[in-house]
Computed example of a mutant assay.
Amino acid sequence: MHLPHDAARVDVENRIDKTATLTKESAFFAFPFALDNPVVHTEATGGILGTVRETVPGSATHMRAIRRWISLSDDTHHAALATAGAPLVQLGGIVIPYAPYPQSLPQEEPGTVFSWMHSNIWDTNFPAQQAFHHTFRYSIAITEADEKAAGPIDRLAARTTALTSHPLVPVRARAETRAGLPAQTRFLTLDHPRYGSWA
Rank of each mutant, 00 (worst) to 15 (best):
residue 159 R to H: 05
residue 173 A to C: 09
residue 161 T to S: 03
residue 153 I to E: 03
residue 181 L to D: 12
residue 169 V to A: 09
residue 153 I to D: 00
residue 175 A to F: 04
residue 164 T to G: 08
residue 157 A to F: 02
residue 177 T to D: 10
residue 155 R to E: 03
residue 169 V to Y: 12
residue 153 I to K: 00
residue 179 A to M: 14
residue 168 L to D: 15
residue 169 V to P: 13
residue 163 L to W: 10
residue 161 T to K: 01
residue 175 A to Q: 05
residue 163 L to R: 09
residue 170 P to E: 07
residue 178 R to M: 05
residue 164 T to H: 12
residue 159 R to M: 11
residue 156 L to M: 04
residue 164 T to P: 11
residue 151 G to C: 05
residue 174 R to C: 08
residue 170 P to S: 09
residue 168 L to N: 15
residue 169 V to C: 15
residue 160 T to M: 00
residue 151 G to K: 06
residue 170 P to F: 06
residue 164 T to E: 06
residue 179 A to F: 13
residue 157 A to H: 01
residue 158 A to F: 05
residue 180 G to Q: 11
residue 180 G to Y: 09
residue 172 R to L: 10
residue 152 P to T: 07
residue 152 P to H: 09
residue 168 L to Y: 11
residue 175 A to L: 03
residue 165 S to A: 13
residue 182 P to C: 03
residue 163 L to S: 01
residue 176 E to L: 14
residue 171 V to T: 04
residue 157 A to L: 01
residue 182 P to S: 01
residue 181 L to Q: 13
residue 178 R to T: 09
residue 155 R to I: 05
residue 159 R to Q: 09
residue 166 H to N: 15
residue 170 P to W: 04
residue 181 L to T: 11
residue 178 R to W: 10
residue 159 R to F: 08
residue 167 P to F: 08
residue 157 A to K: 04
residue 177 T to H: 08
residue 173 A to V: 10
residue 167 P to T: 08
residue 163 L to V: 06
residue 178 R to C: 06
residue 168 L to W: 15
residue 165 S to L: 14
residue 171 V to F: 11
residue 163 L to P: 02
residue 152 P to R: 11
residue 167 P to W: 00
residue 173 A to F: 11
residue 180 G to E: 06
residue 156 L to F: 01
residue 180 G to K: 08
residue 179 A to T: 02
residue 168 L to V: 10
residue 156 L to G: 07
residue 156 L to S: 00
residue 159 R to L: 15
residue 152 P to I: 07
residue 159 R to S: 09
residue 172 R to A: 14
residue 158 A to V: 06
residue 156 L to P: 00
residue 173 A to Y: 15
residue 174 R to D: 13
residue 165 S to I: 10
residue 157 A to E: 03
residue 179 A to L: 13
residue 164 T to Q: 13
residue 173 A to H: 14
residue 164 T to L: 10
residue 166 H to M: 14
residue 180 G to N: 06
residue 172 R to K: 11
residue 160 T to W: 08
residue 155 R to S: 01
residue 162 A to I: 05
residue 155 R to Y: 11
residue 169 V to R: 15
residue 178 R to P: 01
residue 167 P to M: 11
residue 166 H to R: 12
residue 183 A to K: 14
residue 154 D to F: 02
residue 153 I to F: 02
residue 166 H to F: 14
residue 154 D to V: 07
residue 172 R to W: 09
residue 178 R to Y: 06
residue 156 L to E: 00
residue 151 G to E: 12
residue 169 V to L: 15
residue 167 P to Y: 06
residue 155 R to A: 01
residue 183 A to S: 13
residue 167 P to R: 07
residue 160 T to P: 02
residue 180 G to F: 03
residue 182 P to D: 06
residue 176 E to T: 15
residue 177 T to C: 11
residue 179 A to C: 02
residue 164 T to Y: 07
residue 175 A to Y: 03
residue 180 G to M: 01
residue 166 H to W: 09
residue 155 R to M: 02
residue 155 R to D: 07
residue 156 L to A: 00
residue 168 L to R: 14
residue 173 A to P: 04
residue 160 T to N: 08
residue 157 A to D: 04
residue 171 V to M: 12
residue 178 R to N: 05
residue 180 G to W: 02
residue 161 T to H: 02
residue 171 V to N: 09
residue 180 G to C: 05
residue 151 G to M: 03
residue 158 A to E: 00
residue 160 T to A: 00
residue 151 G to P: 02
residue 160 T to H: 05
residue 169 V to Q: 12
